[in-house]
């Protein structure tokens, strides 16, 4: 299978503090990969480094295009949609304006309208809330909006930062079912960061385990599920 993203020797730091110490990993085209790890392991930073939101060094290539020197906006325009930690919706704008901004870098009006409808089919609740200020949405709705906005880019790769955070279990199930559909039906590759390892491994086909800025274990989801360390520390059985 071909690779959509290849990362080599990725380092990242906040001010004087280095957080990632040279990560090597790759993502399969059309696959779902998850990064597991405890709080502070560097999961969010890995995503932020790919999107160019932190100072970073190393090689990041998206299907052959080198990203490591590009700005966040330019990386997004190459087809990476990042659903950030805390959702990052534009709270003062309406739901629909948020979605419209998701397609900001595109010019194909007809296709954008089509995609908007498709997002509304995935998340019917957003259609009901289309005119409502995004700040007034519930946590689950806001997360759906964030994912919907990312889809409006027609991304080749979707980065998801803890989509389950702070949501009720039922909502989480619903959301992950939709993510699976998106992956199946549209072939969007995904890189998922999750605290909830069991949930993540269910959706993902590959997984990496991150500890204090280093990748310590990697493999298919099945093999990771059987790994003693992962089971004990992250799955709890």
């Amino acid at each position: 299978m071909s690779q959509i993203l290849e990362v080599k020797g990725l380092e990242a730091s906040y001010g004087p503090t280095k957080v990632l110490h040279g990560l090597d990993f790759s993502l399969d085209q059309g696959g779902v990969t998850t990064i597991l790890g405890a709080n502070g392991a560097g999961k969010t930073t890995t995503l932020r480094a790919i999107s160019g939101m932190v100072t970073r060094s190393g090689k990041i290539s998206l299907a052959g295009t080198e990203l490591s020197s590009l700005s966040t906006a330019d990386i997004t325009r190459r087809g990476i949609a990042h659903v950030p930690e805390g959702r990052g919706t534009f709270v003062r704008m309406s739901t629909e304006d948020n979605l419209r901004l998701g397609a900001y870098s595109r010019n194909d009006k007809a296709a954008i309208a089509e995609d908007m409808e498709r997002v509304y089919t995935y998340f019917p609740i957003l259609k009901q809330r289309r005119g409502q200020q995004a700040g007034t949405l519930s946590g689950g709705e806001a997360q759906m909006l964030a994912v919907g906005r990312a889809l409006m880019l027609r991304p080749r790769l979707l980065l998801l930062d803890e989509p389950s955070f702070g949501l009720a279990p039922l909502i989480v199930q619903e959301l992950f079912a939709i993510l699976k559909r998106i992956n199946d039906e549209e072939g969007v590759s995904m890189l998922l960061v999750e605290q909830n390892a069991a949930l993540a491994l269910e959706l993902a086909d590959h997984a990496y385990l991150l500890e204090t800025g280093n990748i310590v274990i990697s493999g298919t989801s099945e093999s990771i599920l059987e790994n003693e360390t992962v089971r004990r520390s992250y799955l709890g059985y």
Binding site: S51, G52, M53, S71, T72, A73, D74, T76, R77, A81, H82, P84, G88, T89, F90, V91, R92, M93, D97, R100, L101, G102, Y104, S105, R149, L153
Partner: peptide, 24 residues
């Protein structure tokens, strides 16, 4: 206008604006 909306977005939330491709 698209640019007008992008400008508001960039002011309100620069991080998210970058993530939808706006050159903040």
């Amino acid at each position: 206008t698209r640019i007008g909306m992008a400008m508001q977005a960039a002011a309100a939330n620069p991080d998210s604006a970058g993530l939808v491709g706006i050159r903040v």
